[in-house]
Design a protein around this nucleic acid. Sequence first.
DNA 1: TTGTAAGCGTTATCAG
DNA 2: CTGATAACGCTTACAA
Lengths: 348, 348
Amino acid sequence: MATIKELAKQSGVSVATVSRVLNGYPDVRETTRKRVLAVARELDYAPSAAAQSMVTKRTQVIGVLLDTGAGHPDIHHPFFQEVLVGLKHGVGERGFDLLLFATDHPGNAFDSPSVLRRAKHHRVDGVVLMGVDPADGEVQRLVRSGIPCVAVDLDLVGPRTGWVMSDNVEGGRLAVRYLHGLGHRRIATIHGPVATRPGVDRLVGYRLETQDLGLATPEGFEQAGDFYPETGYAAMNALLELEEPPTAVFAASDLMAIGAIRAAQERGLRVPDAISLVGFDDIQLAPLMHPSLTTVRQDKSGLGFAAADALIRMVDHPGASAPAHALPVSLVERESAAPRLDPDAGRG
Amino acid sequence: MATIKELAKQSGVSVATVSRVLNGYPDVRETTRKRVLAVARELDYAPSAAAQSMVTKRTQVIGVLLDTGAGHPDIHHPFFQEVLVGLKHGVGERGFDLLLFATDHPGNAFDSPSVLRRAKHHRVDGVVLMGVDPADGEVQRLVRSGIPCVAVDLDLVGPRTGWVMSDNVEGGRLAVRYLHGLGHRRIATIHGPVATRPGVDRLVGYRLETQDLGLATPEGFEQAGDFYPETGYAAMNALLELEEPPTAVFAASDLMAIGAIRAAQERGLRVPDAISLVGFDDIQLAPLMHPSLTTVRQDKSGLGFAAADALIRMVDHPGASAPAHALPVSLVERESAAPRLDPDAGRG
DNA sequence: TTGTAAGCGTTATCAG
DNA sequence: CTGATAACGCTTACAA
């Protein structure tokens, strides 16, 4: 593999001059520049990132921390996937690359080196955290280390740590408001884990809006899930076994909504005729389900892009304040929610 | 950030000794070892990967090349996502990390530096290629560069380049055979791009099996798609507008199958009653669709793991031969395909 | 069992 | 405008 020394020899100048040319310094004679560039092209020269970073103290690499372990690794969730795309573009535009860290055993640092150590090892300029437990010791150490961090869907804070997420509270309100506008009065929710920020925020949105609207939320109308289909399925079954089941359900993720619809259908209930559903996320497959999913859309790649932007800003400006962005959400109407033709039928 | 020099000073030995301890060399007095280790732990020391790689000529980093551009970036496809998980685990186990390369503009190296140059720049020990065009000049240069490469779902070959993929031909045969076993005689296919290996192989499997079974495959029974839902939708419409439409369809991807089912349903045709479908991949959502998807399962994370294994083997053993693995597939029965109760009804 | 020193490929600081 | 040369943090002969 060609080195700068090779280039220097072949173009008959010193390595210093080659370096100047390669880095676009102006104080180089035009003919020299051309000669060096020609040789570089010919040898398909690429500077060693390692050597560069040793002297510049920058790696131009951003670490990405997301659960890729067993069970429901977040990398499986379509949401994080799309965030990753936005992130990739965002950092790519600015000349950074992405290094994937695995947390195979979340919260278990026995065998694998700690995240912080790995971040240090690779001297990443910053790290993006997704779907990790903010209370985790590993995460805390990383955040406190002074390495610029941006969390997606986590409200991590620290001197050089900020976050980006969707306006989840508003999303929850939006869903309830929409269902209410359709004539529904018995609106339940399948919420996400209350240990996660999006989980509680969407639930808060649900509670706030039902309250504002004066809707009753009887015992059992709040079922817990984990954002994945299986729990949506189970939660829907619980909801339908209530003495007075809801006529509409707000599921805090599309995946749970899909599980829920499946549960309803298996009981012979047609969606949206017998029961309406609104999801959250607007995953790729949402428009293709049968019925297609009415849902609260998040700007997923926008989140990734915002994270990249915020992170690199911190990297470039040591004094920059940590970001705290909430991106707007919107409701997209499809087939899974329909007007309640006979509101409160069967009640007093 | 602590350096080896710091460690040396604080533990009162030379850097060489520290290095020995850190790398587990046996010729170090036990007391010395303990002292050094204690200091290292205290400082939460992490060796600089850059410095290490400069001298060892190894980075312990594997590059991943997959389309993250506009349109249908492969990172969006659930298939590649799961492969990525297996890959991550496979390399992680062996102490490697993953560096994500973007090809924002496949086949357009105007602005972004070539893939090969980026691989050289980071001195990655090897690279995994997914969903790229094997004929692409960029890819060709990379493969010919001598850097160990493993392609997933591409039959790239080269001195140090091999591939892993599913047994796609057998998968195609399996689907047709299954449908035939169900009593279907008019079996069509929605195949993938013939410019891709899985695209042609699954089609070949379809052709081989229909032939062996003596099934007629009239004009129009082979509709082209691109593995994504929209084309499955369009292809199904074309199929259903045939004078004598099929009673069963083999779609070369689950996503296309989903699009196809949607098309059928919109025309008032119930699946599987009116028409049966078999997909390919067994994506996460396959069991959750309504109807759930009967499909040919690929061992996606197994592919990733196999790729990691093969790649690292090549990295470790310069003389090792390039891999060429075809992983077995299996048919998983669900709801989208059902027996043809009245075979060939309406025909002679 | 340990220390000294060369060298990995760059950039940056000096002189010239 | 250009060339020496000192870092950067590490591993690894080679000595002791």
